[in-house]
């Protein structure tokens, strides 16, 4: 068996030292793995991602990315935040956003010719080469999300972590995004935080359930009972890929 690309052992994290947000986390992510990270609000999904990125330090336990600490392995990770968190009026072009992936190479942050080329190639990979000079604010939600994915690709890492990329997207943009992720998964690990547990079975190989504790299941094992256990309360599951009448219908 190959070595885990991300290895988390006995991890505990708390913001106040009293109530842990995450406890006893043990997780392995394998090369070319694809997993969605799901769980209720406040369950620790974003905290887990921030720990993997090295933005937070665990109280105890360890995280290794290819044998390195998260801070040392940052260049391996392409991080895609939610597009909705950005200032809609910020005057910046799509190309300038993607070029940010190449920062840190020089003291001043000046981009070299190859940096701009890498940014243009990444935009082409997400089918946005024609919109490179277009203001970020003038793009649709789906296009903005793809610009952020291009930024993650331009950094050249082999791990892609996306934080709720489908939030605020319409159905068509969501499908396009998932098709793109499936393509990207051929060469890199894809981890995605989401609330849309329904479509996870259509694309991801595994589901990482985060609610203080972390459990990993193959997506084939995803059931309404499992989701209910994870989120608590009575909720319904909507399968986006399954329609037996126009507009689809809902399943318990």
């Amino acid at each position: 068996m190959s070595e885990a690309a991300i290895e988390i052992r006995d991890l505990r994290f708390s913001y106040s030292h009293d109530i842990p947000v995450l406890s006893d986390v043990r997780l392995d992510v394998w090369p070319q793995d694809s997993a969605c990270i799901v769980g209720p609000n406040g369950g620790g999904k974003t905290t887990l991602v921030k720990l993997m990125l090295g933005l937070l330090e665990p109280d105890s336990g360890s995280i290794r990315i290819g044998g390195q600490t998260p801070a040392a392995a940052r260049t391996r990770i392409g991080y895609v935040p939610q597009y909705a968190r950005y200032d809609a009026c910020f005057p910046i072009s799509a190309l300038e956003v993607v070029c940010m992936a190449r920062l840190g190479g020089t003291f001043s942050g000046r981009y070299m010719k190859q940096d701009k080329q890498a940014a243009l190639d990444a935009l082409a990979a997400v089918s946005l080469a024609d919109l490179a000079r277009r203001p970020f604010s003038a793009l649709s939600g789906g296009q903005r999300q793809r610009v952020l994915i291009a930024r993650a690709l331009a950094s050249g890492g082999d791990i892609l972590i996306l934080d709720e990329p489908t939030a605020s997207l319409d159905r068509e943009s969501e499908q396009q995004l998932l098709a793109l992720l499936a393509e990207l998964n051929k060469e890199r690990i894809v981890l995605m935080v989401t609330h849309e547990v329904g479509f996870s079975s259509t694309f991801f190989k595994r589901i990482i359930c985060v609610n203080n504790l972390v459990y990993v299941h193959p997506t084939s094992a995803l059931t309404g009972e499992l989701i209910r256990e994870m989120y608590g309360g009575d909720l319904r599951m909507i399968r986006h890929d399954h329609r037996c009448c126009p507009g689809g219908h809902e399943h318990d």
């Binding site: 990125l53 300038e96 940010m100 992936a101 840190g104 942050g109």
Partner: peptide, 22 residues
Amino acid sequence: CLFYNKLLALCFDEEYAFLRGV
């Protein structure tokens, strides 16, 4: 002029700029 790209990244997305080593 010297730090234009880094200042731009700081203003647009501070967290990402930090992750890129700024």
